[in-house]
Design a protein around this nucleic acid. Structure first.
Lengths: 238, 238
DNA sequence: TCAAAAGTGTTATCATTACACCCATGG
DNA sequence: CCATGGGTGTAATGATAACACTTTTGA
């Protein structure tokens, strides 16, 4: 049943960049292997066409779940890619979304449409289909920038985590060898957005305190800070 | 000459949020009055349909020039709006771009397709067509956030400006009554991204030094800072 | 000579950095 | 008893915030 328009229209897709942290706090990205041409057998970002009645964000979440089984994730719009020629089949606009998930809590299922899905280390990526490498690069830059002024990192960790894990997470995302432990801990605890919830057990070293991210305190701080900014203003900060 | 597809496709548009500063450093936004239904006679963001061979950004710049005569602007993608129902004519996806211009250097022309275009003070906006108020709100939030860590403000000023103008600009964008003059000047000059280029003349008070933004120094600082971040890391900064 | 902005010196406080050492656990 | 990460005290340095006063111009 064909659809007819007076002017030509591009196709509209969504693509998802899903980041996860593995057991040793390495940053990974979720890719699927294409079964059809173009780029048959190449790895690509999960994604697909937007339904006519469907919100863009909903489409991204749906495609993600259909192709990888992953759901219930923190997800934000990244950018919209629309270069003519980015898809050999014709003009295709892609709205990209990125998400952060705790890898352990989001095992990938045998995907419903039988595409292969797998986590890849960012340092060992295969060649990607379409302009997906470019999209991925932008996503990495986005989370690197964002992690510095918004607590998105907590999405990657299990609900309860140690300061050691948190520090490794920052080191991974920022691509830094080693942050100063003393200063990291001072800063993060002085911020007051963590609450102590217990003590680690069963490790072969001094057990660490377990923390949770305190959403309420964070929201409160944001509000306070907003007042502050109105008073203080500029924080140009390059 | 109709175009036919196997699946329905949404229409694709771009919308532009153009900010300008008037003589007294008030922030304004450029709107056009719609000549046709839907929302006939209502004010709206300049924008329109994307051509099939045309980059999204190019489309935004083209629509802007066609409808308002404004060109050669700093422009960045803001967000893509795609709620079903945001346009009564059917599914329409809009990629929004925001731009900052020096109002004095960008007088609006009698627009080529005879739509009325005008600058509006943000405190005195008319009711806007479609979801354009929502788009505008997001744009304002974006520049408020961005002006704090990137020197986008300079796009709004004439090439040469005084520290007084620069300070008013920050006060305007941030919506603050009065920043501390002494501290503002210390901070901005210590950053070292301004170069002195002359002295004001013909004013009824002590003439101010004129400055230009020093792109090269800024790029250099960015690079240095990148090294720094790799070393230091976190700057969570709420 | 007055109004209107431009421009500066200094101090208290707070955050950041850079150090090196002790602690608790399982194996 | 030792390897492994967890956890702290503190001093030097630099940035920020909060003050009020002097300077230069055209009208």
């Amino acid at each position: 049943m064909p659809y007819t328009y007076d002017y030509p229209r591009p196709a509209l897709t969504v693509d998802c960049i899903i980041f996860g942290l593995d057991e040793s706090q390495q940053l990974k990205v979720l890719l699927i292997q294409r079964l059809k041409d173009p780029f048959k057998n190449k790895w690509a970002l999960p994604g697909g066409f937007v339904d006519m009645e469907e919100d863009l964000r909903t489409a991204a979440l749906r495609e993600l779940e259909e192709e990888t089984g992953v759901r219930d994730v923190f997800m934000e719009q990244l950018f919209t890619f629309g270069q003519p020629g980015r898809d050999p089949r014709g003009r295709v606009i892609s709205v990209a979304y990125y998400a952060l998930v705790n890898l352990a809590e989001h095992p990938i299922e045998a995907a419903t449409d039988a595409k292969e899905a797998a986590w890849f280390n960012l340092q060992a990526l295969p060649a990607l289909a379409f302009d997906h490498q470019e999209i991925l690069d932008m996503a990495i830059n986005r989370i690197r920038a964002k992690v510095r002024y918004q607590p998105i990192g907590f999405e990657l960790l299990p609900e309860q985590f140690t300061l050691g894990q948190l520090q490794k997470l920052y080191e991974t995302i920022l691509g830094v060898k080693e942050l100063n432990k003393r200063n990291f801990r001072s800063k993060i605890t002085k911020m007051g957005v963590l609450k102590e919830v217990g003590i680690q057990a069963g490790v072969a070293h001094r057990p660490a305190k377990l923390y949770e991210f305190d959403q309420e305190k964070y929201q409160q701080l944001l509000k306070d800070r907003h007042q502050d900014v109105l008073k203080r203003g500029l924080d140009f900060d390059i």
